[in-house]
Design a protein around this nucleic acid. Structure first.
Length: 112
DNA sequence: CGAATGACCAAGC
DNA sequence: GGCTTGGCCATTC
């Protein structure tokens, strides 16, 4: 292993690590939106960058607890990702998901 | 270094 | 509530 730097390494840069750390702090049965995460980290990141952080997130990060501002799982209809994967994990944790894959942010939105 | 991408958000119709 | 447009920052080629 000498030239294996092409792959994103978890815990390498700071910005990603901050997002992963915050997502890891989300308790079971609660969800957070991309905008909230960006707002919590401050002006060091933007909602778009949060998506990038999750795109390369390690398996230690419960990315399923992160949904968009509409309270819906983006990956739910995204080609390339297992459909209903996020919903199944959330329901397994006790989160009530709507028939359309929507979540009640008014009650499940978690705040640090 | 410039251009392109990405799991977004807010505002308007 | 749903669709369209513009802006946003970070990463990758």
């Amino acid at each position: 292993m000498t030239s294996q730097e092409s792959k994103p390494k978890p815990g390498g840069k700071g910005i990603f690590r901050e997002v992963h750390a915050l997502v890891r702090r989300i308790p079971s049965g609660r969800v957070m939106t991309y905008g909230d995460i960006a707002a919590e980290l401050g002006s060091v990141i933007s909602p778009l960058a949060v998506g990038w952080a999750l795109n390369k997130c390690p398996d230690d990060v419960p990315w399923q607890r992160v949904v968009n501002a509409a309270g819906k799982c983006s990956t739910d209809e995204m080609p390339g990702f297992p459909r209903g994967r996020q919903i199944a994990l959330l329901e397994d944790e006790g989160v009530v998901v709507d028939e359309k894959g929507r979540i009640d942010l008014g009650s499940y939105r978690w705040r640090p």
